[in-house]
């Protein structure tokens, strides 16, 4: 089987930002509000009134397909990882396929908490290896968070997409390691509008599982921390991942390029992967990236090596930094309106 690489990548972050200060101002008598500040998130990305996980996924997909330089009709598969879908039964991938103008494609969704995106990427890569057409992998989330919740100052919206296929790519996927466990850390039953969670369980599991998954990958692939220029972890907040990095003895500088949480919040499925996209915007050929994405007791660790194709593909679309800098601050009331809470 030919090697499969990432032919193109793209992301989309909505323009609107809500400062966490604004959330605190709205709920000044809650003691949690001072705790959130210590978790390091300064502002979060908010989807506009007429945006949702599908429109954001479409924008990211469009960027990825453009960067890859392929025709959407050449795609053999579209897999979307999303844990905040509005429909119990309706495929986001099918909608995005229609939006891109392709129909002869296997379109299905991958739903597994925050690691929906990375699982989709592993599945997409395997599908591209087994067949002869490229696969588009999208990770998008527009989380349902209740007002005044602990998750409110942490959750953001955004999307990222990758095209996996054979040929000279911007990065080659060297390998992956996955583990799974059944837990209740963040969960959402069908009839309930908002996520339930246990923050203590969630943080502890995140630490333990991420450390274990990252170590296991490096053991099985015979690599060390020194072999990688960049590390990305899924970012539930802007503090705990840095603690995990210390536990793994990852130097702070290696975490910097992919660490976006303090500026946009936790993007759930897109959290770690958008860090990968941000890294690819500035990485050089030959550098290696290790990404570990956690979700509901499981984790996917994916290793990448930046390839020859990185030159010249970067400027085809706006960079992650372009999206982060194109921002408009909104107040809390606008945030409630845009999220259709009121």
């Amino acid at each position: 089987m030919d090697k499969v690489s990432i032919l193109g990548y793209g992301a989309y972050v909505p323009r609107y930002r809500l400062k966490i200060d604004e959330i605190e101002k709205a709920w000044t008598d809650k003691e949690y509000s001072t705790r959130s500040r210590r978790l390091g998130v300064e502002e979060k990305a908010v989807a506009g009134f007429d945006e949702d996980e599908v429109t954001m996924g479409y924008e990211a997909a469009r960027n990825a397909v453009k960067r890859a330089g392929i025709d959407p009709a050449d795609l053999g598969g579209i897999i979307t990882g999303c844990m905040s879908r509005r429909f119990r039964d309706k495929s986001v991938s099918a909608m995005i396929a229609q939006m891109l103008g392709t129909s002869e494609v296997l379109a299905c969704d991958c739903v597994h908490s925050s690691k929906s995106g990375s699982s989709a990427l592993i599945l997409g890569k395997s599908m591209a290896e087994a067949g002869d057409r490229s696969v588009l992998v999208i990770a998008t989330d527009n989380p349902h968070v209740a007002p005044c919740d602990d998750l409110e100052p942490l959750s953001g919206s955004g999307a990222v997409a990758f095209v996996c296929g054979k040929g000279k790519g911007v990065a080659h996927i060297e390998g992956s390691y996955s583990c799974s466990r059944e837990v209740y850390d963040i969960w959402q039953p069908v009839e309930v509008p908002y996520m339930y969670y246990d923050m203590n369980v969630s943080r502890q599991l995140y630490r333990d599982v991420t450390v274990q998954a990252t170590r296991a990958y490096m053991e099985r692939n015979g690599t060390k921390v020194d072999d990688y220029t960049y590390f990305v972890l899924s970012q539930q907040d802007a503090r705990v991942p840095l603690g995990v990095a210390r536990a793994l003895k990852i130097p702070k500088e290696k975490m910097a390029a992919g660490f976006l949480c303090s500026r946009i919040g936790d993007l759930y499925s897109a959290s770690a992967l958008i860090g990968v996209a941000a890294i690819l915007d500035t990485a050089k050929e030959g550098e290696r990236i290790l990404a570990s994405s956690y979700g509901s007791g499981g984790a996917d660790t994916i290793g990448l090596r930046v390839g020859k194709g990185i030159k010249g593909r970067k400027d085809a679309c706006p960079s992650i930094e372009d999206y982060l800098n194109d921002k408009v601050y909104i107040d809390y009331l606008s945030f409630l309106r845009y999220s259709h809470v009121i």
Partner: peptide
């Protein structure tokens, strides 16, 4: 051109439209 969510109509139909 891009695509945005235009309406949600009873029962549960989400309508997207170019903008």
């Amino acid at each position: 051109a891009t695509i945005r969510r235009a309406r949600e109509e009873y029962p549960g139909k989400v309508i997207y439209m170019y903008r």
